[in-house]
């Protein structure tokens, strides 16, 4: 198998955002209509004007109509097949991300966005996956750019906008852009107050805890963790480990060792330490002092 050439730009954001735009093109249906009209004119010109060939003209008209109907059906079939294929590709990328198979996910998302998407919705979905992959490769500025592009250009419902904004805030924090991150979180809070329901968002709670740990406000981080634990427990699945890990760091910063130990054990019980450290480098100092939860040999 040959690898990419020397000019190959891995996940070049500007290029991918441009190449994936859905484009108006000469669809098969338009070509079919033009072809039928041309054939109709030609047969009328050649056959329709002479009395002896009028019956032949009628037959060719029937055949043309048949071709048109069959072409119309074929065009619809091909369009549906292409839409399904793109949907399937997106599903595969999502599965690769869930399974943390990052190199395969990166190449698949690059391949998907390298050609025009069929619809703005599929493109938005693929861009969201691109933002996740970029964050995994610690390209946080690029990840922020992709999130911002989605928010500017794609029409999304409130829930989707909220999750993109949470993703952007998290990427800003990881990019050490604390001022913009704080502004983004304040905006999310304001929207949450206005909307009511989103105030319960576990994603926003996680971002806020992370911001407080990062900016040296452990007491606020613990308060947020305790008040939002039930919501995060309900919705985050095993990502609840993220919240426990950040809480452990916050307890540690306050010198509350027993609580820090317990929170650290809970975090490492739910997710491997190596994954948690990759996500939050801030918990690295804990690794030297605290013992992670030991997994049995069957699952280690």
């Amino acid at each position: 198998m040959t690898g990419p050439g020397p000019d190959f730009a891995f996940l070049d954001v500007a290029t991918l955002l441009e190449s994936s735009r859905p484009r108006g093109r000469w669809s098969g249906m338009r070509l079919l209509i033009a072809g039928c009209a041309a054939a109709l004119l030609l047969s009328w010109f050649l056959l329709g004007q002479t009395p002896g060939t009028q019956q032949l003209f009628s037959v060719s008209l029937s055949v043309l109509l048949g071709v048109f109907v069959a072409g119309w059906a074929l065009n619809g079939f091909l369009a549906v097949r292409e839409a399904r294929a793109q949907q399937r590709q997106l599903q595969i990328i999502e599965e690769l991300i869930q399974l943390r198979r990052w190199p395969q996910a990166a190449f698949s998302v690059q391949a998907f966005l390298s050609r025009p998407a069929r619809s703005p919705a599929t493109r938005a979905q693929a861009m969201l996956f691109l933002a996740m992959v970029l964050a995994r490769y610690h390209r946080f500025d690029d990840s922020v750019a992709v999130h911002e592009h989605i928010l500017e250009e794609v029409l999304l419902d409130d829930e989707a906008v909220h999750s993109v904004q949470v993703g952007r805030a998290m990427a800003l924090l990881r990019a050490e852009n604390l001022l913009d991150a704080d502004r983004a979180i304040a905006d999310l809070r304001r929207q949450a107050r206005a909307a009511g329901g989103i105030g319960e968002s576990p994603g926003l709670a996680l971002v806020e805890i992370y911001r407080d740990v990062k900016t040296g406000h452990p007491a606020e981080a613990i308060q947020m963790f305790q008040s939002r634990l039930a919501v995060m427990r309900r919705d985050l699945g095993h990502r609840l480990a993220d919240a426990w890990a950040l809480a452990a760091r916050a307890y540690d910063m306050l010198g509350q060792s027993p609580q820090a130990e317990q929170a650290y054990r809970n975090a490492t019980l739910l997710l491997p330490l190596v994954e948690l450290r990759r996500r939050y480098p801030e918990i690295a100092p804990l690794a030297d002092r605290l013992a992670p939860a030991a997994a049995p040999a069957e699952v280690a």
Partner: peptide, 17 residues
Amino acid sequence: GRMELARWLRRRVELLA
């Protein structure tokens, strides 16, 4: 009778729900 595994799994379960 694999009690170490059982206890580890149960602790995870109790954290989740």
